[in-house]
Design a protein around this nucleic acid. Structure first.
Lengths: 204, 204, 204, 204
DNA sequence: AGGTAACCGAGACGGTACGTCGAGTCTTATG
DNA sequence: CATAAGACTCGACGTACCGTCTCGGTTACCT
């Protein structure tokens, strides 16, 4: 239970930078706390004092490189399809980038056996990203472009679920074309019933 | 380059059993070759001689517990919706079972960093499972219940993608109700256009 | 170069008490500055400011518990043998007492590697104690009970040397009976030659 | 509980050599297990597997440099005084040698807080050395040069006790002249009563 | 009376070594 | 020659203390 007000900003920054660099150089599996400490010119204890695990350090390092949460927001051009294609392409690009992808994959691994890390991962990275998509979908829903009875978090997962499925399970390559196909299909699922435009949509 | 004909079946079996048990008891991360060898009453070298990695042992252990590929096939009652609910419920149940889930999660982890393992994983476990669903969808397509222009492997991923998304990313609990919602939405996406039953469906 | 006039007596006392207690509880080797500071409710720096080493703290702690130098003096009943038995028994008792012995042993340890400490140890504790014995022997010498050519400091060591030998080298238990035997033998060595009472004793 | 028959002689030897060298180079206090392992080209675990403590390693290293126990035996020229002077001078010389002395002093320290080490120290080094002196004294006793009622181990301690006292307590320098004085005095104590050559000596 | 310089408790910091664990390799004895 | 057993080298783990270095806070002296 250290006192955060006395924390050394210099050390914190050096640690996150070192972690970020090293994860790119040697990969997450071969990344060691010892190496981070050495590179950062810091005692190991200083890392253990402030982070519970290697995963937590890397998560913070990743967040530090991510810019402010405002630009997570999707544009709203009125064209849901186009706006969604923007995000899914960005997701595909990010997951294809070897560096980012390596770290992401590593964190995916860690959260499989570390519920605490999973929680902060969801809270700080995944959650905001999915929420941004959900926001755009809500706007579309308000504009009558989507069914009114949708659970928006499910709607989001209809879109990103198949993308992550390919990335994580490696059943087939994750391409922009695939992302487009998935988006089209998903929007078809989310669209209001065309036969009963004035009735009550009911799902489930 | 060991001689497989002289391999001890007793040892092979003991190793796979021990690996299966241990992955359930301590999780994949804390699973060690040493512990497997000790539990199996086997020399470490015997494991290193026949398997290249911890993941390979666990994969074999999982395959050994999996029953014959024939009963992967989905029933065809004529009602796609019902037949799919059967599989998705089975998937949800399997991923909820702590023992089975432990091993599966372990393999998910390992394939993130071992492409070779990923390949044999897809080939021997994931592939057959997804193919079984694809087969049922093909039958439905042939019966005119689904769009004719579907890429069936994409279709399958529209259904299972969101399920694995929840399981692996832990954004929300994976429940049978969720599986039903996803299946309904997916089928809505995969169904032929209802407004132009005589026209040509066109996707993309 | 701290200013001794501003030194906190409260802290000084708490540190010495804590050191004394801890050396009895965990032994000298496992005694840490950190533990002393914690037990004394004192910042580590306060210890480092006033003492150069762990040994110096313990030496001071011991001196603080030692009573005034006046009662080091041996009684002079006229019977050297009896008077010496008094001291040697006291030494044996002190070295047998687990608490006192712990601290003494600690200092013995420390002076092995710290000549400066050894010097002040000899000056402030060992010296006065040995001098007290030497004083009694001198009286006996003056009374004609001991050889006239004795180096008194050697004489003292003939008596206490064997005692410390057992205590420090642990070759055999240190008992009052052993102390008596040693004293008898030593006195026999120190006594004037009985065959030539009128001649000049000459040693070396 | 490792199996000693499978122990690597190569490693054992390298460790003892490294320990011996390092203790001479940096002293006992700054000697670390890690440095020994590195110098010996050995895993730390190999040291921990076979020795319980740093002190035990150094003790073994010291023993390894000591030649066979046969040459501990004192010569018997018929002149006890001369023969004893030989050993005490050897002891003084050994305790004056900075290298040997450093290690010896270190072991003295260790045995103060490690009874197990103390035991093997006594058993393997101190014991045999003292026994060798006792043997010579026994011969003198048989020759009628010493009192018949002597406890020989006490007799030995009358001689070496004062020597170790100076060495360990650092009250005064340990010189050959001091050793001679002590030996003379001790022999005077141990000699048979000259006034009653035919009577029964009785001590205590 | 206010300023300031020291001590003080607290504890974060960069380090070093600890003793343990497991990886993957090598050796020995047994079948 | 495969095996069970386990010793080996190596590297990282997470912990404990070291001695130094800020932090506020509280005296005690000095203008």
């Amino acid at each position: 239970m250290p006192d955060p007000t006395r924390r050394s900003e210099r050390s914190r920054h050096a640690i996150l930078t070192a972690a970020h660099e090293l994860v790119g150089e040697v990969g997450y599996r071969k990344l060691t706390i010892e190496a981070i400490a050495a590179r950062a010119g810091v005692g190991k204890q200083t890392i253990y004092r402030w982070w519970p695990s290697k995963g937590a350090v890397v998560l913070d390092a990743m967040l530090a490189t991510v810019s402010d949460p405002a630009d997570l927001a999707l544009p709203d051009t009125g064209d849901v399809d186009a706006d969604l294609r923007g995000v899914v392409h960005a997701i595909v690009a990010e997951l294809a980038d070897p560096t980012l992808s390596g770290t992401s994959r590593a964190l995916m691994i860690e959260i499989q056996e570390d519920p605490g890390l999973a929680e902060s991962m969801v809270e700080r990275i995944l959650g905001p990203n999915l929420a941004a998509i959900a926001d755009r979908l809500r706007a579309a829903q308000d504009a009558g472009q989507l069914r009114r009875d949708l659970d928006l978090s499910v709607a989001v997962e209809m879109i990103v679920g198949p993308l992550y499925h390919r990335w994580l399970l490696r059943t087939a390559p994750l391409t922009p074309a695939y992302a487009d196909t998935v988006t089209d299909l998903a929007l078809r699922a989310l669209a209001p019933d065309r036969l009963a435009p004035h009735g009550e949509d009911r799902l489930e």
